[in-house]
Design a protein around this nucleic acid. Structure first.
Length: 659
RNA sequence: GGCGGAAUAGCUCAGUUGGCUAGAGCACACGGUUCAUACCCGUGGUGUCAUGGGUUCAAAUCCCUUUUCCGCUACCA
């Protein structure tokens, strides 16, 4: 096999705040199928994945669980690794951002950038929510309030270190413009350019003092390194990179020298900005070469309703594998994912693909071929050279498949590549109909033709199964074992006839993929959902309790300053410019007030009309999204941010005082 | 609000620089077949290619109107 050079691929490192669902798992499988194919093509491959383990969220989760952050991330990282293993991903390196060599290099990088003036100390200004201990930008606020808890935020500032981005912006724009393949899919390029690069970048905050669970800034111990400088560096620290040039070799090899720059960073489309702007600038500041390509893949979404842990309808890889098997799940996530748009996953769609593609087209083909070989030829198909016109068409298609798959994979069109492989199997099924072996089998004079036909089939399936290896490695093995064939190298796929004539196939063909009944699968899925809901949401449903931060005590006089009345909503419309606001005309006594509320996601304008609600009447009028609001509709809010309007429990006239 | 993208068969989508009767898969119907996991093969669409207009010998493909959906909008990992 030709030596094609090196190929270094990374996935994003998974955040260890909880068990990854099938959407996260997809990325690992996609990456795996790409690197497996590269290996098949003859590249010297390095495949790195891992976990991102720092941050405030983890500190809080660990505290909730009553364990140390390290214990917490050890558990979750282990779970993620075991899912990656379950999915048969062939990573060479599983990095953790709590690994000591990583932490050490991040500290060195931080210090160097500080010393050369690319990182400076300043103040991080923003809106601060005291109970949540979180900073937000003004654009993140919802109606001027904390997006997490809905309470007022105060302008505040915190000492922080910043990475200067402006210095490298022009170079980055130049790089992006001269390397059209750098950002994939290309449509994302515009978003980065128009929203960030061209208007000018704000400097990036790279340290925090508000929590401790992070890599300490060694020369300023009040600070921990914040998120991206830590997380993104994994791509080089995982190769043994050392800032002073003393790279740590692995098995005697300097991997950084060998594999950097990366050929592909495979990430979700939501973190493209960090990989196409901040990471390249960090590398420029370190005077290191930029990765060759960054591909922001689309998401795999749940079909029926939003994924929610409390509903118990989150799909996890292990549940799917239990139901369908590893390769079927791999096939599904790879096949169902279009290139630029999000894909959909449901139990029904899984069953459909499983039955029609895997059981019917592929599994049944292998099965019928082997059973005919046994039935008519005692399990031994020989190439007797008795050909007919139909053979040429079959051979042409089978031999042409490799180049098509290669072309698709070069463009990272993995779903299309799999489809190309399956055209082989479909063509084989047609070939059986064209040649009708069961008729040949009845005529002793046609035995040589029959043998040739079955040989052609076995040879075609051998090639098809070998091409399938990157996507469904276990299936490839099973098929080849049943045919007693050896795997065909990619370079040998331009010749027909590699299968050793006269080999005996298995006399006990195993079913590769069992057909499934949709109803049975859905019934089992419901059991899984119920179990999940019980594990995650049951206590909440029984009796959910919410504790909120206590506000300072007020006097009765303070309370009496507030005027609450029953109001009737007589008209309501959406505020056009806003995603969250509804504008209501509220009749309070004989007066009508206009009130804007952030409840569009919970109530439609139509259903608002006619409701009697609790209104804070003497609130100072304010403009929300340019619309005047003369009061406030009061709502109860649960932990997930769902709102419920307060309405009088008995019939009350509009204008009635609430006291 | 700003920038960008998309609207094609019941469903999911292909349609390269404008050019032969607009395609694939799934689903559905009918026919064939029986080696096989009730499987496989064949046949079947009058689709206003979202809308209205324009450029052209020729437009799903280029330009403009309108409508609807979607993405991004900065420090969230």
């Amino acid at each position: 096999m030709a030596d094609k050079g090196t190929y270094y691929l990374t996935t994003a490192i998974a955040y260890t705040s909880g068990k990854p669902h099938i959407g996260n798992t997809y990325e690992a499988v996609l990456a795996d199928s790409i690197v497996r194919f590269k290996r098949q093509e003859g590249y010297d491959v390095r495949f790195q994945t891992g976990t991102d383990e720092h941050g405030q969220k983890i500190e809080l989760k660990a505290e909730e669980a009553g364990i140390t952050p390290k214990q917490f991330v050890d558990d979750v990282s282990g779970e993620i690794k075991s899912i990656w293993d379950l999915m048969n991903t062939s990573y060479d390196k599983f990095i953790r951002t709590t690994d000591d060599y990583h932490e050490k290099q991040v500290q060195k990088i931080f210090k160097k950038l500080y010393e050369q003036g690319d990182i400076y100390k300043g103040y991080y200004e923003g809106m601060y929510c005291t109970p949540c201990e979180s900073f937000f930008t003004s654009s993140q606020l919802v109606d001027g309030k904390c997006p997490d808890c809905g309470r007022e935020c105060q302008p505040a500032k915190e000492e922080a270190y910043f990475l200067k981005l402006s210095k490298y912006t022009d170079r980055l724009i130049e790089h992006i413009n001269t390397h059209p393949e750098f950002i994939q899919p290309e449509s994302r390029k515009n978003e980065m350019m128009n929203n960030f690069l061209l208007p000018g970048l704000q400097d990036l905050c790279v340290s925090r003092t508000s929590f401790k669970w992070g890599i300490p800034v060694d020369f300023d111990p009040d600070h921990v390194v914040y998120v991206w400088l830590d997380a993104l560096s994994n791509y080089i620290t995982g190769l043994g990179f050392d800032l002073d040039g003393n790279n740590t070799p692995e098995n005697g090899e300097d991997l950084f020298a060998k594999f950097w720059p990366a050929d592909l960073h495979l990430i979700g489309k939501d973190i493209l900005r960090f990989h196409t702007i901040y990471w390249p600038i960090m590398l420029m500041a370190l005077d290191l070469p930029l990765p060759k390509q960054i591909f922001g893949h689309p998401w795999l979404l749940q079909g029926d309703g939003k994924m929610s842990k409390s509903k118990g309808n989150v799909l996890y890889a292990d549940d799917l594998v239990n139901m369908f098997g590893v390769d079927a799940v791999r096939y599904f996530v790879l096949h169902e994912m279009p290139f630029e748009n999000d894909g959909v996953i449901t139990w029904e769609l899984m069953v459909e693909r499983m039955n029609s593609d895997l059981a019917n087209t592929l599994g049944n083909l292998v099965n019928r071929t082997i059973s005919m070989t046994n039935k008519y030829l005692g399990g031994v198909a020989e190439d007797k050279g008795v050909t007919e016109d139909v053979d040429a068409d079959l051979k042409a298609l089978v031999l042409g498949a490799k180049d098509k798959v290669v072309a698709k994979m070069d463009k990272l069109r993995v779903a299309d590549a799999i489809t190309e492989v399956f055209t082989i199997f479909k063509r084989c099924n047609k070939y059986i109909d064209e040649t009708e072996p069961w008729i040949l089998g009845k005529d002793e004079a046609k035995k040589d033709r029959l043998s040739t036909v079955l040989y052609n089939l076995i040879e075609s399936i051998t090639i098809g199964a070998s091409l399938l290896k990157s996507f469904m490695p276990e299936t490839t093995e099973k098929i080849l074992a049943q045919l007693n064939a050896t795997e065909r190298e990619l370079d040998d796929m331009d010749k027909f006839g590699g299968y050793v004539s006269g080999t005996k196939v298995t006399d006990k063909p195993e079913i590769l993929f069992m057909r499934l009944d949709v109803k049975e699968v859905l019934a089992k899925a419901e059991e899984i959902q119920a179990a999940q809901a019980e594990a995650n949401g049951a206590p909440q449903e029984e009796e959910e309790v919410i504790d909120i931060e206590a506000k300072p005590e007020i006097t009765f006089d303070d309370f009496m300053k507030l005027q609450f009345q029953v109001g009737e909503i007589i008209a309501c419309e959406e505020v056009k410019k806003s995603k969250k606001l509804l504008c209501s005309q509220v009749k309070i006594g004989s007066e009508v007030k206009q009130i804007v509320s952030g409840i569009k996601q919970h109530y439609s304008a139509e259903e608002m009309v006619g409701k009697k609600v609790m209104v804070l009447v003497n609130l100072k009028p304010a403009k929300l999204a340019g619309v005047l609001s003369e009061g406030m509709l009061l709502c109860a809010e649960d932990a997930e941010g769902n709102l419920a309007l307060m309405t009088p429990e008995k019939k009350m006239p509009t204008g009635a005082e609430i006291c």
